[in-house]
Amino acid sequence: MPLARYGLFAQDIDIYIAPTWDSGDTWIASMNHIAREGGCWVLSCATAIQGKDIPETFPQRDELFLSDEWINSGDAVVVKPFGGVVAGPLHQVKGVLFANIDLDAARDSRKALDVTGHYNRPDIFHLEIDRRTMPPLTFIDNTTID
Results as ranks from 00 to 15, higher is better:
residue 124 I to A: 07
residue 9 F to N: 07
residue 27 W to E: 04
residue 114 D to L: 06
residue 146 D to F: 13
residue 23 S to P: 01
residue 15 I to C: 11
residue 93 V to T: 15
residue 143 T to A: 13
residue 16 Y to C: 14
residue 60 Q to L: 14
residue 28 I to H: 00
residue 76 A to K: 00
residue 61 R to P: 08
residue 37 E to G: 06
residue 110 R to T: 13
residue 115 V to N: 10
residue 104 D to C: 07
residue 68 D to P: 15
residue 111 K to M: 09
residue 120 N to H: 04
residue 52 K to I: 09
residue 108 D to E: 15
residue 7 G to S: 10
residue 6 Y to Q: 11
residue 112 A to V: 11
residue 62 D to C: 05
residue 112 A to N: 14
residue 81 P to E: 15
residue 88 G to D: 10
residue 96 V to I: 12
residue 135 P to S: 14
residue 32 N to P: 13
residue 101 I to S: 08
residue 71 I to A: 07
residue 79 V to A: 05
residue 44 S to G: 06
residue 6 Y to N: 08
residue 100 N to K: 13
residue 67 S to V: 02
residue 102 D to Y: 12
residue 65 F to D: 02
residue 111 K to I: 06
residue 54 I to E: 04
residue 137 L to H: 12
residue 143 T to V: 14
residue 109 S to M: 07
residue 74 G to K: 00
residue 99 A to Y: 10
residue 122 P to N: 03
residue 62 D to R: 11
residue 142 N to C: 08
residue 127 L to S: 02
residue 119 Y to R: 03
residue 136 P to R: 09
residue 125 F to T: 01
residue 72 N to M: 06
residue 117 G to K: 08
residue 83 G to Y: 10
residue 35 A to E: 01
residue 102 D to W: 10
residue 108 D to W: 15
residue 69 E to F: 09
residue 81 P to M: 08
residue 135 P to C: 12
residue 134 M to D: 07
residue 106 A to D: 12
residue 90 L to K: 09
residue 127 L to Y: 05
residue 40 C to D: 03
residue 110 R to S: 12
residue 44 S to N: 01
residue 104 D to H: 13
residue 37 E to Y: 14
residue 77 V to S: 00
residue 118 H to C: 01
residue 113 L to N: 12
residue 17 I to M: 14
residue 109 S to D: 14
residue 71 I to W: 02
residue 13 I to K: 03
residue 34 I to E: 02
residue 111 K to T: 08
residue 96 V to Q: 07
residue 112 A to I: 11
residue 11 Q to T: 13
residue 51 G to P: 00
residue 89 P to S: 12
residue 131 R to Q: 09
residue 30 S to F: 00
residue 56 E to G: 08
residue 141 D to S: 15
residue 57 T to G: 04
residue 100 N to G: 11
residue 130 D to V: 01
residue 97 L to Q: 13
residue 43 L to W: 01
residue 94 K to C: 11
residue 135 P to V: 09
residue 111 K to S: 05
residue 114 D to V: 05
residue 92 Q to V: 07
residue 7 G to R: 03
residue 73 S to G: 01
residue 5 R to K: 06
residue 21 W to Y: 10
residue 80 K to D: 12
residue 122 P to A: 03
residue 26 T to F: 03
residue 91 H to F: 11
residue 82 F to P: 05
residue 109 S to P: 08
residue 67 S to N: 06
residue 113 L to R: 10
residue 43 L to Q: 01
residue 132 R to K: 07
residue 29 A to R: 02
residue 69 E to N: 05
